[in-house]
């Protein structure tokens, strides 16, 4: 366990750029823009912004940045897995890591777990910091549009906590849901290195094409395989009608929203996907074990 944690820390040290420095730069730019806007008194707000209160404005903003940070995380993780599984070969460090008393499976498992734990945690912290900026923007908006009212700090904290909790659950479920796709590009990276990114799309595309050529017009449009992948790419939150909740008068309630969100998830698909992910990581580790180090 101690060595696994150390290997995850190694991943953090090697790949923190996309998950620590880049979000730090983004937050820095957002803060600078905000400070510049305040200092130069350049904030402008349309009178009709479609939200009933400052608190709803804050909730809408906080949920919107949650979606943006989630998209950033999923994209960064895709590139992380495409790189990390072959990074030891690319860095000419394979022989060094092979001289350590850890199995190839443990090394790849540490890479997989880093992408599922420490890196999402960093992005989540960045998201929480963004919440502070959203709060500042909300207060400025409330001053410009007095009809929105100014809720107390406790109300903001409570609302922020509810949304952050919902985002955390959503983030965890998204990571689990997309785990087989990450494992797929990671496993390809073990064999094909940087070519894993185009191959991650090309191989399913070719399988779909082959299916269409062989079973012409006997199945659904584009074929069973690509239809399945298309459906599997959709994540549960798509069906939640979040807009209705956001633009209602009631405050965001995680106790209501989280069960509703979890009920949209196809658990059989999720568990099956995790098994596929584990098998892909295992296959990649066996390939890594069997190939001469350099």
């Amino acid at each position: 366990m101690k060595s696994l944690v150390a290997l995850i820390k190694r991943e953090y040290l090697e790949h923190r750029g996309a998950f620590l420095y880049a979000p730090g730069v983004i937050l820095g730019i957002m803060t600078l823009v905000l400070v510049f806007g305040i200092a130069s008194n350049r904030f402008q707000m349309h009178q009709e912004i479609g939200v009933p209160s400052a608190l709803k404005f804050f909730e809408f903003g906080f949920l919107a940045v949650a979606a943006l940070w989630c998209m950033y995380l999923l994209a960064a993780l895709f590139f992380y897995y495409a790189d990390a599984f072959s990074a030891d070969r690319r860095n000419n460090a394979m022989l060094f890591w092979k001289s350590m008393p850890v199995t190839d499976f443990k090394v790849l498992a540490s890479k997989s777990l880093a992408g599922m734990t420490i890196f999402p945690a960093l992005i989540f912290v960045a998201y929480l910091i963004t919440g502070i900026l959203i709060y500042v923007v909300t207060m400025i908006t409330a001053m410009i549009l007095p009809r929105l009212g100014v809720p107390g700090v406790f109300e903001f904290l409570s609302s922020g906590f509810q949304i952050a909790l919902f985002t955390l659950v959503g983030l965890v479920m998204a990571l689990l849901w997309y785990a087989p796709f990450f494992a797929w590009v990671g496993a390809l990276s073990t064999v094909f290195r940087r070519w894993s990114i185009p191959l991650a799309f090309l191989i399913p595309g070719l399988i779909g094409l082959a299916e269409n050529l062989i079973f012409n017009d006997t199945g659904p449009r584009a074929g069973y395989f690509l239809n399945y992948l298309s459906e599997r790419m959709k994540f549960g939150a798509d069906n939640m009608e979040l807009e209705k909740v956001i633009f209602s008068d009631a405050s965001f309630n995680a106790a209501v929203m989280i069960p509703r969100f979890l009920s949209t998830i196809d658990w059989a698909q999720l568990v099956g996907g995790l098994i596929v992910a584990a098998l892909l990581v295992y296959a990649a580790s066996e390939y890594r074990r069997r190939t001469v180090a350099n």
Binding site: R10, E14, N91, N92, A93, M94, L95, F96, W97, K98, S99, M100, P101, V102, T103, K106, R289, A293, N294
Partner: peptide, 19 residues
């Protein structure tokens, strides 16, 4: 290999330290 490496050390390439 993994368990063996507790008692075996090797340098196969001096440029292989993680840079």
């Amino acid at each position: 290999r993994a368990s063996l490496m507790k008692n075996v050390a090797f340098i196969s390439d001096v440029a292989s330290l993680p840079r």
